[in-house]
């Protein structure tokens, strides 16, 4: 092959690739907007704007993209509830003493927008990513009311101070993996209504819970033995 034949083949192949890629891209963007992501409301868009203006993405990954320094947030709206997220983002230290997420001056409105954004992101069809862990710990194997309690323990931010079976934080609260052995249901209930009732010098906050939420959590904690 001469040089000019090589060049012509080169150009031809590349043009074919670019055209094929462009066609698939148009199709992809159409499907992403129409089917694979929920509609983008004004609030979701505003949340995304805050997310980018504060450069959260260079510490956190979202959809697996970004800095590897801080927790992946694609599904954060599934593991934390809106109140906890809002409290944490506006004032990380207050919600979780000792945390190393900086206070970035997120206002209450911005936090609402961010929550809407995270809820939107958690509903993107990601082909099943992130994958479920392969090995289930005892904490993930329980069922019924206990598993509702288990969800709540996550969502209400208990795991941002406590650890259960290797999940959650190392402090300031004690490890709760065997708490059912130590503490009976009554005491657990009283503690959740008002921690200072049980331990006057407690620094644990009284998390607002409905009666049934509290019951589920107590039921779950009592199975941890």
């Amino acid at each position: 092959m001469t040089i000019s034949q090589t060049r012509n083949l080169f150009i031809l192949l590349i043009v074919v690739c670019i055209v094929a890629f462009a066609v698939m891209s148009i199709d992809s963007v159409r499907k992403v907007s129409a089917e694979r992501t929920p509609p983008v409301t004004e609030q979701v868009a505003a949340g995304k704007a805050v997310w980018q203006a504060k450069n959260c993405n260079d510490c956190h990954t979202i959809l697996g993209i970004g800095g590897y320094f801080a927790p992946e947030l694609t599904k954060v709206a599934e593991r934390r509830d809106a109140d906890w997220l809002k409290g944490f983002m506006t004032n990380p230290q207050k919600t979780k003493p000792g945390t190393t997420m900086p206070n970035l001056g997120v206002s209450a409105k911005e936090a609402d927008d961010l929550v809407a954004f995270f809820q939107w992101v958690s509903k993107i069809d990601t082909n099943g990513w992130p994958p479920k862990p392969l090995v289930s710990t005892s904490a993930t194997a329980s069922s019924g009311a206990a598993s509702a309690g288990q969800m709540l323990v996550r969502q209400k931010g208990c795991l941002s101070c406590h650890r259960i079976d290797g999940q959650g934080a190392t402090g300031p609260g004690p490890d709760l993996s065997k708490v059912g052995k130590r503490i009976g249901n009554d005491l657990l209930t009283r503690r959740l209504i008002n921690p200072r009732d049980v331990n006057p010098s407690s620094t644990m906050p009284a998390t607002p819970l409905t009666d049934s939420e509290r019951d589920s959590i107590v039921e779950y904690l009592s199975t941890l033995k």
Binding site: F10, I18, A20, F21, I65, D125, N127
Partner: peptide, 26 residues
Amino acid sequence: YIEVGLTLVTGIVGTGHHYYWIGTPD
């Protein structure tokens, strides 16, 4: 030409390795 040609032929559609999990079609 040969090397750059192959790089582009594989690399352009190869962008797909970033489109597995970000909401793009399967």
